[in-house]
Design a binder for these strands. Sequence first.
RNA 1: UGGGGAAUAGUGCAAUGGUAGCACGCCUGACUCUGGAUCAGGUAGUCUAGGUUCGAAUCCUAGUUCCCCAGCCA
Length: 568
Amino acid sequence: MGIPDASPGGDSRRKDFIREIVAADVKAGKNGGRVHTRWPPEPNAYIHIGHAKAININFGIARDFAGQCNLRFDDTNPTREEQEFVDAIKEDIRWLGFDWHDREYYASDYFDQLYEWAELLIRKSKAYVCDLSAEQVSATRGTLNEPGINSPYRDRPADENLDLFRRMKAGEFPEGSRTLRAKIDMSHPNMNMRDPVMYRILFANHHRTGDSWCIYPTYDWAHGQCDSIEGITHSLCSIEFENHRPLYDWFLEELGVHHPQQIEFARLNMTYTVMSKRLIKQLVDDGIVSGYDDPRLPTIRGLRRRGCTPGAIREFCEIIGVARQDSTVDVQLFEHVLRQDLNVHAPRRMAVLDPVRLVIDNYPEGAVEYLDAVNNPEDESAGTRKVPFSRVLYIDRDDFRQEPVPKYWRLFPGNEVRLRYAYFVTCTGCRRDADGNITEVHCTYDPETRGGDAPDGRRVKSTLHWVSAAEAIQAEVRLYDHLFLTGNPMETENGREWKENINPDSLKITKNAQVEPSLAQVEAPWHCQFERTGYFCTDRDSRPGRPVFNRTVTLRDTWARIQKRRGK
RNA sequence: UGGGGAAUAGUGCAAUGGUAGCACGCCUGACUCUGGAUCAGGUAGUCUAGGUUCGAAUCCUAGUUCCCCAGCCA
């Protein structure tokens, strides 16, 4: 599925601007023709499909150029990072199908080296200990339109800086009382260059280094140097770091060490969902979704539970391309890729989500016959299975109407349809309860059409799925829809909140679905297509004899479109 | 004293001075034991205004719109 083998020199199918740069570098012999990338998550949240894009770019480019991609946890802030997320992120990357082999690194692996380099910059008078508080630093930084002013501590002699910095490390000063700052230019038009903080004092327990440090490097100070240590050649990140590139370059140049090239690309946005850690957390914390693996979330765990396949996610990441401009991918493209994958791989089953009894009046009472059903018309090797058929079946309520409307080809009095893999039946009428609800549909069958074909060559316009009532298994089916009503959930009418755009019908649960008996003991996660309905995946809430299915995505549905156009 | 980016069908991505193309979406039709899949066809675009050139999405000038930056977050 669109995942070509490694091919030195690049893969011809893809030609994004980053691959062009990398290819040119390889051709020019830069870095000895070596390509080495890294994916650097901060272990403070579960990753989502936007991260999958970044993962695919970094691992994909390494693969295409016969290089390597490291996994590096950017764990420079002990106040927000946890081992739990390290484990979860690793699991998610593996599930997506990527492998960093033994190259699992942590920014914290390099704390010693980073510290030494900081002393080097101090000795070069390129860094100083600043006694200003956070508020004071902020107040003296200036604004977008005004230059900042120099810290009164800016010209401290190197020796004094060194002494102070060592005492910072030794824990002699309270949290927040001092920082180490790079000495660059307080009037630089790029705010990142206005003497950025390199170290802050934090008496926090780190998930890997414990209490051995009380000063921690900032992202800007750590990232480029970590890249350099690992011999990264191309440091790929999202567009909001573009303003940091001059600083990234400045540190590396001052240090005179291996200098990877930072290249930025646009992050992924998708319609009808939100793609930010902060917003996803709010949805979870507010109980709007059930947790980080809620199938309505774009988290990898959510997508996985929903039944999305790693192959489809990878293909999606390929197909959306890589560019620098802000964009929002239509979720329909994702659904298309999902269907494309599932269509080929998912076995077919029959499941009736909203059951109504169908009684075949001329079929012998008590008889059961087992009919052959094809498991996957797209894959002959998937074989066939036996499905029980009897006098009383369940069909979906939607598949019968007392009064047909134009283009409605399913069951209505007098109309003949095919029961998939079974017989032609002709509707004779229905029964209703006291309130007028249809309780039973009646029909007669033609014994000559066993298997689904009429010997006289007559045709029907419609084929229905069904299950035999006596043999059916009751199942819970969870029907998911977009979490938001609007393509861009953040776009609200004045005074309104984004959460008001949440789709109240994003989850509909049916506990009384009737499914064919072969579905009684499926183990999670298992993908299949419910014929004519959609692709489903078993949920981890399934119990033996009581399966629970999540709808991954519906089938394309022209009838629904016809109805929608009619205004319903 | 502001700086850095980005603008191509509805959406996403190509075209690297030489016929604006692909995918999704949408619309037709064919086929079909899933109103699925498949197949065939159609729809629709270079932010604006100038300029250079035989020729401009691409180069130049001016403008417009959108995004990012004032964490001791990443």
